[in-house]
Each structure stands twice: as C-alpha cells, then as structure tokens.
C-alpha cells in the first residue's frame, strides 16, 4: 500500500497535498483499491464553497458508487478535467495524475484535523 509520508489524510480516505497556498485533494491508494475500476468521476462544485466533511463530488466504480468528502472547508478552484475521459487514472496514479480538485482553504485551524501518513496507516490497518 502506497501512503506517501509527505501527504495528509482523512478518515474518508482522501489525501491532501499542501504546497504553500495550493491545496490538492484526491483519494488514497487504499480507496481506489477498495472501489475497483473507477469509471466516472463527477465533480460539479467547481467555484463553490464547500464545508469540511460535506460532499464535493462522487466517484463511480464498476460495482459501487462513493461520495467524495471535502477534507477542509474552502472553495473548489479547479477540477481535474483529465478525469472526464480518463477516470482510470485514479486507479493508476491516485497521488499524481488521478488528483481530483485544487482548493482554497477558508479555515487554517482545520489543518490540525488531518491525519498524518502514520495515523492513516493505523486507520486502515496497513
């Protein structure tokens, strides 16, 4: 299981990459494995402000559908348009080409609620 040390995580199996002001969000390697072949990523909240733990989109696998939860309150700045035609990138490269949104944080205090790689590994029993 690939759980990069440099990223932060949520109990809903999302990862968060914090690079200065830029925050990128996706789903973890564990999540993509659990879901199986991802065939459709639907995110229609671009430009909207979404609160922490609220749904910002949906990911459809062949066998199941799962909501995507906002790891932090903020505005969805950009959606990975590549996933429209190539949703399998979420399976192939969940931390790179399979990223889902870029967002602007509205409450810095919430950063403390994120899990470290170590915490996340414990959560999934890895």
């Amino acid at each position: 299981m690939n759980i990069p040390e440099a990223l932060k995580y949520t109990k809903d199996h999302e990862w968060v990459k914090i690079d200065g002001e830029e925050i990128i969000v996706g789903i973890t390697d564990f999540a993509q494995k659990e879901l199986g072949d991802i065939v459709y990523v639907e995110i229609e909240t671009e430009g909207e402000e979404v609160a922490q733990n609220e749904v910002f989109g949906t990911v459809e696998a062949v066998k199941t559908v799962s909501d995507l939860f906002m790891p932090l309150s903020g505005t969805v700045l950009e959606v990975n348009a590549d996933l429209e035609d190539n949703p399998e990138k979420v399976n192939e490269a969940p931390y790179e080409d399979g990223w889902m949104i870029k967002m602007q944080l509205s409450n810095k205090e919430e950063l403390e609620s994120l899990l470290s790689a170590e915490d996340y590994k414990t959560l999934i029993g890895s």
Binding site: D37, V62, K63
Partner: peptide, 10 residues
C-alpha cells in the same frame, strides 16, 4: 469479489 480488476475479469 475481485482478483485484479472487475473490468479486466469481465
């Protein structure tokens, strides 16, 4: 339920 990929197995 799955060994590799649902699609590939199908």
């Amino acid at each position: 339920v799955r060994y590799s990929s649902d699609k590939e197995e199908h």
